[in-house]
Every structure is written in structure tokens, then in C-alpha cells.
Design a protein around this nucleic acid. Sequence first.
DNA 1: ATTAGCACTCATACAACGAGAGTGCTAGCT
DNA 2: AGCTAGCACTCTCGTTGTATGAGTGCTAAT
Lengths: 365, 365
Amino acid sequence: MAAFLSERRQLILKLVVQEFVETATPVASDTLVRKYGLNFSSATVRNELAALEELGYLTHLHTSAGRVPTDIGYRYFVENLMDRLALSSAEQRMIRHQFYQVRGELDQWLQLAGAVLARTAQNASLVTPPRSDTLRFRSLELIAIHETMALAVLVFHGGTIKQQTLSFDSVRNGEDLRRIAARISDRCQDCTFTQIEELLTQAQTAPLDDFERLLYDLVVRAMRGYADQAAEQFYSDGLIEMLSQPEFIPALVREEDAVRAVERMRRTLELLKNGRALGPLIPQVLASDGVQVIIGGEHGEDAMREYSVVLARYGVDGSVTGVLGVIGPTRMAYPRSISTVRYISSVMSDLMSGLYGAEPRQPEE
Amino acid sequence: MAAFLSERRQLILKLVVQEFVETATPVASDTLVRKYGLNFSSATVRNELAALEELGYLTHLHTSAGRVPTDIGYRYFVENLMDRLALSSAEQRMIRHQFYQVRGELDQWLQLAGAVLARTAQNASLVTPPRSDTLRFRSLELIAIHETMALAVLVFHGGTIKQQTLSFDSVRNGEDLRRIAARISDRCQDCTFTQIEELLTQAQTAPLDDFERLLYDLVVRAMRGYADQAAEQFYSDGLIEMLSQPEFIPALVREEDAVRAVERMRRTLELLKNGRALGPLIPQVLASDGVQVIIGGEHGEDAMREYSVVLARYGVDGSVTGVLGVIGPTRMAYPRSISTVRYISSVMSDLMSGLYGAEPRQPEE
DNA sequence: ATTAGCACTCATACAACGAGAGTGCTAGCT
DNA sequence: AGCTAGCACTCTCGTTGTATGAGTGCTAAT
């Protein structure tokens, strides 16, 4: 991958990326010299820029425009040139503090993670709920709402909860419900849904009556449904932050792009909403440790060609895992995005450990 | 309000609104004559248009541009001119069918209501969860997650549920938890949070120990929190639908507006997100029956000047109520939006009746 | 009261132009 | 050989001027 680049070319590439990320305008040779006090002239820089362009790291919109990094350029930057700075400890403290304040509510954690990611990276964020690939039943509780209606709460290993209201024909009192729920809870302890299905075929554990059968059905369907809707559900935040990026402000962009900015925006929203932006990447992220960066066209989807995604897994190994990250224009502050994603994922992992019962690991970095 | 308008002026105003809603371009006098086969000339129409403009129902962007309805024009249309058509029974069936398929899950109902509203009205939708102004406690269940951690599920009248994980110092078994939960459930039956607070000050119902005190605290805090975050939580959908309206497609709009389309869009998103678009209207909607229409500047917020909101209350009188509706450019298909909102609100009301235990009412219209 | 006819206004599209930015190249310097 | 100063060249962008066409507002005739 890493074609060899002379020290100077590396420096110049790095500066181009940083400058472009900062200003969002194509960077000119003498801007580099002036702004960073390089001890060689703009003509030299021009030669190097031309070489870097030849090698595929940079492009040119037209003759008299400055240089812009290509996907390959960004990739090289992320891989080799980037300063890997962590979030300041003040920021870390602040973030931790916020999570501490909503102690105990998974939904809120997810939402908060999304909000913090968005704010810190100034881009849109995505957070999938933590999931277990083999969901195991823990217990069922039935809470009477009135005589012929109850709330079924299914608790699974790893803290996943599903709730559903349930109506039935015959009148049942609380004690009755409790007894049946306990029976089912006991029998299905630690089972996957296929195991529960097997159980049902065995004579000695056959359901007592129609009602109990109904409940088993509910459990199996819920667990099966959980497996199906794998990557379809997720939290998203930071639309506004992303849309505040210059890419989406026509006044700052070339005329023609201005007209298409909205079109692009709409398509992006669509991608975000239906999960096509994230879905295909999830297996890849789950299968690997650390932060994954997908830059522009590296993502298969054509509509994603102008966007980058920074993702990380979080959760507890072998139990529940989710994916979180940020998405934004390829012109993204990668160091900041990456360290934010890394940090939040470690915080979330700790929280999940807590939920699942393991001791929290020491916070990373 | 309704200044008298001659039959013909009413007709012309109605046609202008309909035509503008349909085409999104200012409507010219002879377009009306041609398209609707009026039996008087464009010159006559021009005179009437001028009169309607004088009266405040229409405007003009510049001399040689067609007419556009003002907020007042839309208001008159909605109040007096609109054809009040209901959704076709085929559409009604289809919608009901969808709700039927997710029987039992409140969250999904809300989400579905949002999706259907958005799709049917081709605009953004908003749905607040059903709430009771005086939340009454029904029961508390504690579900062990592991030795020092449990899931607390609080059930309130009207089907509202709140869940929270809870960790504690000493080891407690399931029986222990069940006993305490039952004790609390029993004592707080049907109480509002102020009543629970009172209970706690009375000696004979004082908590047994720190753990029970912790739980009471949790309950009271949850109920209080519920009251606080009144209008801050809601589902929203249909952004894409709204952004597909011509108002947001620069190519179709005057040059200058094109540049600001995105700016406007961003501000709109912000309004939608933080609830300022909806929040101030909720009391008004809750206090009144039927569908409320707020057109453009009638909404106090300046950023809402170009948007209209169609809202209705849903739920069960005296128990739980929520608000749902659509939001979009003032150039909105009001008849369709209104009938959609009305229908969905009646469907949701029926569902809520089911949850709360009352018999479903006969479907409206 | 209605309408035909026409002058007038204004937005929009298009072309021409000048200015400025930034490159690419060449020739000279170290 | 590597670097740099200088300069011609290219292309965008903002401006100006002009033609066009849509649609009104008015007036005079019916």
C-alpha cells in the first residue's frame, strides 16, 4: 500500500490535507509556504505537488485551482501522517460526567453517545444498540395492565430488554400470570431461540394450555425478530452539525455544486435513514478491533463517494456488541473523529460491562 | 374574520390556492382561465386578483409575476373554501392494517404513525408519546439482572412504562426483590408523585431500609422527570419527504433563494429537533378538539414563518393524550394533510383506548 | 360590468469582459 | 542536481449589457 514518499513530500501532503480540512478551499502552493513558513519556495512546492498528483494523492479541479486530496491521499494521511492525539483529559472528564448523569438507562446512553459524537466531531453520528449474535433468554415477567391485558417484559443476557403488550381472552389475575411467567422463565433459562423451539417439541415440557403456548410463541418470535432486524435499527444524531459543514453551504461552494448541494443532502439523509450507509459495514467492523475508517469511494455505495465513515465496535467481547461512529464529508478532521470514536467506544464498553456484570476495564488511553 | 367575498372572488381565490399548491409556481391570470375554462377573460381575473391582493389574500413578488397566496389567503381557504374530503376507504384500510400488524408495541405505533403521516401528507411528521397530565403509579417490578443489579420497570396508568437499571451494594435474590417491589406496588397504588412524597413523610409507611428508600426515590424521580420533559420528547419522521418539496430544490426556485434554501433547511431541522416548532403549540392543541392548523406567521416563532403545522390531539379523554401532526411549507395540500391527521389521530385514539382498557370507539368518518 | 389591446416592468438567460488566482514551464542561480 | 525567480498561460468568478418573455396594469371600446 504505502508507496514510498520522500520526507518532504510526506510533509507537504500532510500540510495539504490539514489545510484543506481546515479551510475547505483548494490549497495553493504559496499558501503553504506562507502559512507554515516552509524553507523552500512555492515553485519547489509546486513541483512536489505535481509529483504527488502524478502519484494519485492529490487532484486538481482545473488548471488554476489549488490542490485537493484524493481518497488515496486521505488514506495515506490517516495511515501514516496523522498526529494521533487523544482527547484532552478535560474533554474526557466532561464526557464521562455526562454518561454518569444518566446512569442506568441504556436508551439514554445510546442517545447520549450519538449526541456527544456529533458535537465533538461536528458531523453526523450513528449508534447501533448493543446486540448479541446469540441472544439468550433470561427471564419473562408479566405485568397486569388490566383483567385481559398484560405487559410482557422479556429480559435477555446482556441487558437487552423487549416489551410488548399482550391481550388475552380469559380473565387472569396477577398471581396466575406470575406463576406462568416463572414457569417459562425457569424452563427457558439461558436458551437461544432454536433451543426454545426444540423444547416445545418435547412432550415433557409441552405448554399447559393455549395461553402458555401464546407466550412461548411471543418469546420465540421476539427473539427471532431480534436476529432479523440486525442492522436496521440505530440512533442517529448530528444532522445539523454535518449540514453546517461548508460542503452543504452553497454560498461557499462553486455555483454548480450549489444547485446540487440540496440534492446531495437529501440523498445523504436517505442513506442515513434506511441504514444503507452503515449496514454493509457492520460485519466488517464487528469482525475487527479498533477504529475503522472508510474513506469516500472505499465504501461501495456510489452515493457515499463523497463521505467518510469512522466506526468502532463497542461492548463486551463474546456477549453484546454494537457499532458507533461518525459520518461526514471526506474532508473530515480524521484525527479528532478517530480519537472521539475511540474514546466513546471505550466509555460505552465500560458501561456495557457494568450492565453485563463484568468488572469495568480500565479506561483506554 | 371572514370578510365577505363575492362568489367569484371565492372561486378565484380557491383556484389560486389549489393551483399554487399543485405547481409551486406563482399563478398567472390566464393560466387560471385556460386551465379551468373560466367563462370570463383573463383581464377580468386580473381585476379580481388585484382586488384580492388589496384585501390581503394574495401577493406578488414583483410586477410581472403571478399571484401567491398569503397566510391570510390560506387561512380563508382552509376555513371556507376547502373541499373536505376524507381519505379513501382503501387508504383507510391499508393504514389500519399496518397498525394491526404491530399490535401491542406502543413505540412502534408511534413510529408507524409518524411514517404514515409523512408518507401520506408528503411532509415531515411529529408524534408525541401519549401522556397523562397526572401520572398515576400502577406497579413496580424488579427483574434481577445479576446479584447486585436489577432492572426496574415502572408501570403507570394508561400504559406508560419506564425502565431503568439499578445497581445496589448488597447481594439480593429474586425473591427478595419481588417482595420489596410488591410492597411498594401495593402502597403506591394509583398515587401521583406528590401523594407518594406525602406517604414517605408518614411514619407508618416509612421505608424499611436504604434499599427501599432508594427505590422510592427512583419512582418519585421518574414520575417527576416525566412531568418535566413534557414536550421535549417526540418522534419525527418524513424529513426526506419534506425536503423533496420544491421549496427545497434550488433548481426550481429563484436564484437568490437557492442559496438560502440550505440555510433555511438547516434552521428547520433545528426547529424540528429541539421541539421549538411544536412545543409552544401543544397546550393549545391539547385544550381543543379537532384538527388545528397553524399557518406560516400565525406561529409565533419567526423561523416558522414559511411553514404550516397541522396538529391533532389523540388519546383517551381524561387519561392519556398525545399530539400528532405534520409540518411543511405553507404551500401545503391542506385538505389532504388535515384528513390524514384526523384519521391517524382517530386510529391512535382507538389503540390507546385498547391499551387503557376502555372499549374502542367506533372509527370516525 | 366586461374585455381586447398594448405599454410597461421585471426576472431570467446569455454573452462578453476584466480581474485575479494559481499553476506550469523555463532559464538562471547555487 | 536541486532550487528558485519570473512570467506566460489558463480558468474561474463577478460584472455589465442586452435580449427575451412572462405577466401585469391600464385604457378605451363594447
